[in-house]
Amino acid sequence: MICVIDKFNDGIDVLSMKNEKMEVVVSNFGCTIMKVLMKDKEGNVDDVVLGYDDFHQYQTRDAYLGALVGRVANRIKKGCFELNHKQYSLAINNGPNHLHGGIKGFSYQIFDYEIKDNETIEFYYLSKDGEEGYPGNLDLKVTYQLKDDTLSVRYQATTDQDTLINITNHSYFNLSGKKENIYNHQLMVKADCFACIDKDGLPTGEFRDVKDTAFDFNEFALIGERVEQSDEQLLLGKGFDHPFIFTTKENQVILEHLASGRRLTVSTTLPGAQIYTANYLDGRLGKYGHHYFERDAVCIETQNLPDAIHIEKNPTTILKKGEIYDVITSYKFEVIK
């Protein structure tokens, strides 16, 4: 069932999506996933995403805990791009680059919503022409559906002008329920290559084979055994903060925590994901009195290639007038004995 469990000023609501398997708590502020409550192999329930007790922190802090990120996720070089022979300038909010949609991207917007049935919420937002510097009125619908042990997130959008779009969810996962960091989490990513980054986290346009590197997660590997290696790219990112390019069409990323018996399987129609090991969490106070430090979670940000407008010959992040942006990512939370 779905119900409103809290209300704040300006039309901000908090909603619970609950069934026999699990509960997901979300808000129409940034379509934020605030809690994911699931059992472990002993039947104990824990919250497996990071977040805040004080809702004001979602509105004022960076790090995008649980938020929908857009109009364009990740970085755009120097906050500018050319589209249809016209130059556009965006906010510079991450070193020399534009990040996650700008100063007030979708993460900080209040969405209209409708509870469609006992499993489904539809969120709506009209991003007006010129918002954060992007062209076109972008009409966005986001559908959250909780069925059994799987949360599916579908993003659909149209525009009245050619524009850029690259939306993701920025949840920070810790399957131990934040009882430890992610060093003992096993990760599998079905990808043969990853995109290199510079010191500011921006993809350089170079792609490297994962074979014989710390980036090869085609078989399960402990994050803690990989993240501290002296690979030049890991040093630049202060850990993993890189786009991985998938080789399969479903179930591309699996995260496991054997001590609790929890497994997360991420399946998406998108071609890749930014794998980020929370390298810049700064000790801030989060839920349940926990302080959040680097390596306390891992983000699996499914998306098209970051800065595709500057890297790809035919950028996958361009949405043309008359076309429909329609992508789905699902998160399956299960217990393995």
Results as ranks from 00 to 15, higher is better:
11 G>A: 01
93 N>H: 10
133 G>P: 09
332 K>R: 15
37 L>H: 07
53 D>V: 09
227 V>D: 15
327 V>W: 09
115 I>K: 00
214 A>R: 01
67 A>F: 06
256 E>K: 15
227 V>I: 11
74 N>W: 06
171 S>T: 14
47 D>M: 05
273 A>M: 05
171 S>W: 01
308 A>E: 09
90 L>D: 10
210 V>W: 04
10 D>I: 04
337 K>Q: 14
27 S>E: 03
229 Q>E: 15
234 L>T: 05
44 N>M: 12
7 K>S: 02
218 N>R: 12
317 T>Y: 02
168 T>S: 10
65 L>D: 03
71 R>E: 04
200 D>Y: 14
106 F>H: 10
175 L>C: 02
55 F>S: 01
222 L>M: 08
126 L>M: 11
65 L>E: 05
58 Y>R: 03
215 F>M: 03
327 V>G: 00
150 T>S: 08
281 L>A: 05
337 K>N: 15
26 V>P: 03
289 G>E: 02
17 M>Q: 06
308 A>F: 08
183 Y>F: 14
267 S>Y: 08
233 Q>G: 12
20 E>A: 15
312 E>S: 14
127 S>G: 11
276 Y>H: 10
265 T>F: 06
203 P>I: 12
270 L>S: 04
206 E>I: 13
289 G>F: 01
123 F>M: 01
129 D>H: 00
297 A>R: 01
54 D>H: 06
292 Y>L: 07
293 F>I: 06
139 D>R: 13
218 N>P: 08
260 S>L: 06
251 N>Q: 13
287 K>R: 09
8 F>C: 00
155 Y>M: 02
335 V>W: 00
130 G>E: 13
300 I>S: 07
230 S>W: 02
85 H>T: 15
112 D>A: 00
195 A>N: 13
4 V>Q: 02
210 V>I: 11
312 E>C: 14
68 L>D: 02
149 D>Y: 10
132 E>W: 11
329 T>M: 10
